[in-house]
Design a protein around this nucleic acid. Sequence first.
DNA 1: TATATACTTGAGTGATCACTCAATAAAGGG
DNA 2: CCCTTTATTGAGTGATCACTCAAGTATATA
Lengths: 161, 161
Amino acid sequence: MKDLERELKLKPGSFYAAFGSKDRLYALALERYAQEGLERLDALVDDIGPMAALKRHPMAILDYDKSATQACMLAKTYLELNALGHELSHNAASQLSRVETRFAEIFAAAQVKGEIGPQHDPNLLAQRYQSDILGMRISAERTDVNAQAIAEDISARLDRL
Amino acid sequence: MKDLERELKLKPGSFYAAFGSKDRLYALALERYAQEGLERLDALVDDIGPMAALKRHPMAILDYDKSATQACMLAKTYLELNALGHELSHNAASQLSRVETRFAEIFAAAQVKGEIGPQHDPNLLAQRYQSDILGMRISAERTDVNAQAIAEDISARLDRL
DNA sequence: TATATACTTGAGTGATCACTCAATAAAGGG
DNA sequence: CCCTTTATTGAGTGATCACTCAAGTATATA
């Protein structure tokens, strides 16, 4: 809160008039975070098609704003607050599901275009893909792990579907 | 601390006499956590060999103590405390590296036995494997994700090396 | 200009945090 | 049995947390 007050140049009273509470603003931040991530993904799909977008997405995540924390804000929030039984863990969980659903839609689109065999379940592919990305993003925050190699491997694995 | 005092039946003074500080005990807990995980892994290797152990390990993690939090304590600690610049994030990071190193050794052993082709780098395989497991363990903490399917997929992928 | 309305201010509130320490009790040695 | 040492106790400390609110300032309307 101190950091926010300084950066936003809002005294506590103004902050609470504007946002209601720390948690309310945090919920908004979670939503925007997920929204912007999805927009970048959708832009990729529009540019290069569903399968190519899924293959490119992991590396795009690593390239995007290297200065910021690499691990997923939704996952971090979920893990941290689920353990405490905090309300906001539900927000984080539903945003994660929202992203997962979009992944599934893109896998399904790739399947329709024949880029993935019809034997695969797009929902399972999406869960595995999201799991891979969460792992990669944790790894990317470590200094002694080659996250690029992991991103490349995630992409390479999509070729073998 | 309240929880610890209640469970350990130690008043604050006794706690600090015994453990020094909250962080000192936490460091011990991180070490034990990593140690016990490695011991279960090594037992698996002894029982069924390196490659079979790596294939079985993901599902074994999900089976072990389902009542507890599924996400990796080392990863959770690292993510949470690295963001705050906290000392203990280094402890968590080095325990993660210790586990990663053990994975690499097991991959190397599998390679010696001819269960994995010689073109693979055991260190990279270990990083990707650990990343997969961290992702799986996050997914396992979500109620709407089929973590078993992810575990099976991690194993299945090892067959294609 | 006069007055009503909206926004801003920052000292202050109660709760909780990790932690301390003087007092007390228990254990061990001669 | 006394005395030294070691362990336990729990009220209390200062720091920090999210948050409040009465007072002050700016803005809009008549």
